[in-house]
């Protein structure tokens, strides 16, 4: 089939960008979207034009590296699918597609379709962990966890950190990403000791980064390749509020007794 691609080309972080049109006369329906770009890049290189830079790695939809907008939808129109798993059989002959990088102040464009998602790592650094040093853990079966809680925690934990939620959100908000981690750990007994501090710090970091604020459009959930639910945002908000009204205890002890 024949396709026309209009691709965002930008030479560097501070260079101006523009859409450039490429014609692809012979796309096979069995190709994945990224394989189509591979073929285009091979041809560009042969013609002496620099290939289109795009992030990708596992091509199995789990590493979260790939992702760009295809005609205005993060990861393209197929639900629960990353671009690396999107196959060309879902497109029509003669279709024109517009490829743009994630656009968010928090994700600066590095080149063409490649953006910097370091803000996500900083949100995790703010508290997206359980502080247990290696070797200190008790037996894995010492604390039973209700199957339902473990299953829902797993739903939250399946986030791949690709950034589609931020890219699609008209507000450029990262609530879904943050909530997924906050909720996963809040649902498990192992996450309880740091529960309140975690939500407070992670939300504070979320606000420090250049993300927008959530107004519950629901776009994030719709484009999430792992179908992470909006319910987790409500869970995070509830924990955040409960923390505000929580009884805070402070120890007055000073120093160790030796």
């Amino acid at each position: 089939m024949r396709l026309t691609l209009r691709v965002w080309r930008q030479a560097g972080p501070s260079a101006p960008g523009r859409l450039v049109t490429y014609e692809l006369p012979d796309v096979s329906e069995h190709m994945s979207f990224l394989e189509m770009l591979d073929v285009l890049n091979e041809r560009l290189t042969e013609k002496g034009e620099e290939p289109i830079a795009f992030d990708h790695d596992c091509r199995e939809g789990i590493c979260g590296t790939c992702g760009f907008m295809i005609s205005g939808i993060a990861h393209g129109k197929m639900p629960a699918t990353t671009v690396c798993q999107l196959h060309m059989r879902h497109f029509r002959d003669g279709e024109e597609l517009v490829l743009e990088p994630w656009r968010s102040k928090a994700f600066p464009v590095l080149r063409d379709l490649v953006v910097d998602r370091g803000a996500f790592d900083r949100i995790i650094q703010a508290g997206g962990y359980v502080a247990v040093n290696t070797g200190t853990a008790q037996d894995a079966n010492a604390i039973p966890v209700a199957k339902a809680d473990a299953d829902v925690a797993m739903d939250a934990a399946s986030c791949i950190g690709c950034g589609a939620c931020v890219a699609q959100c008209p507000n450029g908000a990262a609530q879904l990403f943050t909530a997924a981690k906050v909720s996963q750990l809040a649902l498990l007994p192992q996450g309880q000791p740091e529960r309140w501090q975690r939500v407070e710090r992670m939300v504070a970091q979320l606000e420090r980064e250049a993300f927008g604020s959530c107004t519950n459009y629901g776009e994030c959930e719709a484009v999430c390749p792992k179908g992470v639910s909006l319910d987790f945002i409500a869970m995070m908000n509830r924990d955040w509020l409960r923390n505000v009204f929580r009884v805070r205890r402070e120890s007055r002890a000073t120093g160790g007794a030796g």
């Binding site: 656009r103 908000a173 107004t215 519950n216 629901g218 776009e219």
Partner: peptide, 25 residues
Amino acid sequence: TTRQSWAARGGRYEVWTPVQADYAA
């Protein structure tokens, strides 16, 4: 929130297609 959201969008999309956001939202 509106100002924050406008600032958070690093440039406008040439094309943006809503997937789930309804008219009300």
